[in-house]
Design a protein around this nucleic acid. Structure first.
Lengths: 188, 188
DNA sequence: GTCTATAAGCTGATAGAC
DNA sequence: GTCTATCAGCTTATAGAC
């Protein structure tokens, strides 16, 4: 297989499995089966499981950055951009119902494991936090922009947790509407 | 050791360790060390690890019921009772910062593990949901009591997730104030 | 009821052939 | 770069002595 194609395949499979089954519960055997490789060959690409995790987090950071850039390009103004974020729990509704928020569940697991890569996982939250803060600042709320950013982040985490627990998509829709109304009131 | 005292000690130690380290990550060895027993003796009290989990969840159900009863007794009216719930993320601030919400993190882990005891863990959420719904009904909001109950539950889950990720107690305090203001506006 | 000894299986990780 | 064979360690769980 040419270049880093196999490596990228491993990272993609691990990314999905870590999300669906959790980091610790996902074995090398499971990743190997998903990619179609033998267990032994893994260590040519990664020296340890923690190294795969680091690569997965790096991959998610890049994907998040790209998504935020896209929102930046496509959305008309800061309010519309924040709405994009608010709606993400509905956009990714099926996955969140089945597996929760990828950032929130990974961060929580690594915290309990006292895993060395925990700060890198938390940095995924910071990516959204900083981006949201910039949007609220552009909305003329520079003074409490960070507080508002955390509030919106907390909203998405709470909705994701309960959507995963109860599997109730109507609840998600109602909460998105409520949060959009809150944003509209803030913007006016 | 007399009666079910050892059993109760095992459940208490497992309860704490499942919370701090996660269910799967907690080994029999760790529980045995915490209680001061040998690994082998465990199977006199519990046939499997899953049986300990079931006992831990049962224990948490009882503790939650007792807490809700206490709030029922001590608080003046439904609004004050809901405030008690809202403040719990601040009351249990240190634990939540270190380990997240005990209900939310367990439910999320069991969902990823596709564990048979997952419904029992979700029932812990339902306990709070039903109790909150009763309080909102008593507040004269019978029509949307369940929606409001889920909204308050989502608030606590979101705050717990971010408190755990960022370790920011000021954020928790601000969100509690915001939610109390929301409740006051609802009540008037 | 508690202990020690041990089984059986899975885990991450390594060595060396091709 | 990929394979097979294998290691050492940990896991849950069992058997049987005291």
């Amino acid at each position: 297989m040419a270049g880093g194609a196999t490596r990228a395949q491993i990272v993609a499979a691990a990314d999905r499995l870590f999300y669906e089954q959790g980091f610790e519960h996902t074995s090398f055997t499971a990743i190997a089966e998903a990619v179609g490789l033998s267990r032994g060959n893994f260590y040519y690409h990664f020296k340890s499981k923690d190294e795969i995790l680091a690569a997965v987090i790096g991959c998610r950071v890049e994907a998040t950055r790209a998504m935020l850039r896209q929102w930046e390009d496509e959305a008309a103004g800061p309010a519309e951009r924040i709405r994009r974020f608010i709606r993400i729990v509905e956009t990714n509704g099926a996955d969140i119902r089945d597996y929760g928020c990828p950032v929130g569940t990974l961060t929580a697991e690594l915290a309990k494991l006292r895993h060395p890569s925990r700060p890198e996982a938390t940095a995924l939250f910071t990516l959204f936090r900083d981006w949201l803060r910039a949007q609220f600042t552009a909305l003329g709320r520079a003074r409490d922009a960070d507080e508002l950013a955390l509030h919106v982040l907390a909203f998405s985490q709470g909705v994701a947790a309960l959507a995963n627990a109860f599997g109730d998509q109507d609840f998600v829709r109602r909460e998105v509407e409520r949060q959009e109304a809150w944003l509209a009131a803030l913007d006016s």
